[in-house]
Design a protein around this nucleic acid. Structure first.
Lengths: 138, 138
DNA sequence: TATTAATCCTATCAATTTAGTAGGGATTAC
DNA sequence: GTAATCCCTACTAAATTGATAGGATTAATA
């Protein structure tokens, strides 16, 4: 299951991308419009800022803004920040590889085989999708 | 993350598929060979039997066997039984569709868009992979 | 028929994760 | 200086996961 954190995060990014002018967008506005608990959303946007995807401005008239063009923000990055590793098992993770304790030979492991395929196909989607795709109004 | 249940289930199915003769295979044998807690595995195989993927024979010399040829056992079915719906959100699930409470228009929802793509690509893998693929020794 | 070896079934449990709440500190525009 | 806003930490309830425990049922065989 996709976590609420990721779901909310994606919706928030989309909301920001869709707000045309480049004024920072306030958490409160996003929370209200997208029906997300504000305090929860605060934490999520903070994570996205620390990961370099969002920038922020404090104080009155502050808020969050995109650090790059929507078309430059890849889902691989967003998903890794929000949801964690894309692979379903550490032994097929590109960025967080870990050998299984059991499993003497990965080439013979059926789980490994299947999960490599799933990882590659999911990765293919995320690599070819940007925030611009998510937020277009087609 | 892939659950242990699914991981163990896949390994067990592979083990059974690889045991050439068509004698039933005992839980204890699988558990020992694959390093899976036996009692835990019992429950998993029971689930697979109730789903019609495995058959069982009770009593002495009993055990579990495949109900179909490995090449006929699709990962779509196995994964749905072990891991649940393939879609990451109910609003894109083919078999367990549920509308989101929020989200007035799915066609405009960025999460929906992205998750449809992920579902389709994952489904594509599972539809084209059978237990025979997992258990071959190539 | 008694024994043994299996599956089958239910209940329980500890650890972890998730989703959210609470309270306030720090910063900036006006 | 005050209001609005992001920033940070700590806490909590509920659900899920990954088991474990104990035994009931069934079947082969000596």
């Amino acid at each position: 299951m996709l976590s609420k954190k990721t779901k909310y995060g994606l919706k928030a990014l989309t909301f920001i991308a869709r707000s045309e002018d480049d004024m920072p967008v306030q958490v409160g506005k996003i929370a209200k419009s997208e029906q997300i608990p504000q305090k929860f959303l605060e934490g999520i946007l903070l994570t996205l800022r620390k990961a370099g995807i969002l920038g922020s401005k404090k104080g009155k008239h502050g808020g969050y803004y995109l650090r790059s063009e929507p078309s430059e923000i890849k889902m691989t990055d967003v998903m890794r920040v929000l949801e964690g590793p894309i692979a379903m098992v550490p032994c097929v993770s590109l960025n967080y590889y870990e050998k299984c304790d059991d499993c003497p030979d990965e080439t013979l492991c059926s789980v490994h085989r299947l999960m490599v395929e799933v990882r590659d196909s999911t990765l293919n989607v995320f690599r070819n999708t940007t925030l611009a795709d998510l937020s277009s109004v087609d």
